[in-house]
Design a protein around this nucleic acid. Sequence first.
RNA 1: GGGCAGUUGGCGGAGUGGUCAAUCGCACUUGACUGUAAAUCAAGCGCCCUUGCGGCUACGUAGGUUCGAAUCCUACACUGCCCA
Length: 306
Amino acid sequence: MSSPPSKIPKKLVIIVVLGPTASGKSDLAMHLAQKYNGEVISADSRQVYRGMDIGTGKVTKKEMGGIPHHLLDVASPRKNFDVVQWKKKADKAVRNITKRGKLPIVCGGTGLYIKALVENIEYPDAPQNWKLRKVLEKKTTKQLFAMLKKLDPARAKTIDPHNPRRLIRAIEIVKHTGKAVPKKNITPQYDALLLGITKTDAELKKRIRARLLARIKKGMIAEVKKLHDHGVSWKRMEELGLEYKYIALFLQKKMDKKTMIETLETKIGQYAKRQMTWFRATPHVQWITSEKKAKTALRAFLRATQ
RNA sequence: GGGCAGUUGGCGGAGUGGUCAAUCGCACUUGACUGUAAAUCAAGCGCCCUUGCGGCUACGUAGGUUCGAAUCCUACACUGCCCA
């Protein structure tokens, strides 16, 4: 870590446990919380939704063993949640936990959320405009890119011209603010220790498969059915991705069970890869291979910052 | 035993005389990431090579026709359906 030892304005301290799916983040975070008087903040874009438990690997009340967990079940799966909302709540949780003299331990695999928190990213003040998006979604990426080029040439230079989702958001921002997309300013507000869990590809693959089968046994399919009964559309389920998407396809008889399981294995594996691509590019991560090493790193970090 | 259909790259599946190392989808590898991030998107993907409108080997096997074949002909092998 590059955090300078006790200089003038003391920053709040956070621990971040990150890594690909099925790498054992939750367990590690929990153990660290137990040992170092911490509380866990989930940095998971799907665990925020109520009723999405087994499929997201959300820790149960029992498993929490008295350790408070934040940012779980804070949104309806029928509605859209996003980084900005998450960051707001996470910042609040960090302050709150710190105030009570506990150590905030952020744990999750959603790289964007972690980045937003650690780097203190201020997103442009432009709410999502679904009406505009609906119109823009009908256009080709070429047309979108041409639009953006006119509205915000600077952003057009850096954006991926093939990615409709980004193009639409960029246009949405300019349309709303009337200005070009502002440059993000990075002024971290926390002293963060980033602990990354690594596993070999083979090991991760094995864990993904085992976990998938265990979840099915635990009633994950029934969970998806229940969500649908409670008004989560199949379309929404597809957006939610992975287990929710493919189990939804299975429940609609668009896919048989065997295919569903096989497909999920590969899709989850691909997801884990994408996560690693992101985390590899994340600065200041201390990659650890055992809980012992995590603890050593944590102690050193606390010594340096307190 | 007879008839018909088929055999293409890891898989599915186009191509039916030249511009085909071979459309496309999947998988795989690598990567991007300014409010959906479990999402969205990009590049690569026979072998060799520094390069190239480059070389080599390839479309079941073996021959043949042709200036030229994954594409036409013959035989063989295997697979599927139909008649015995």
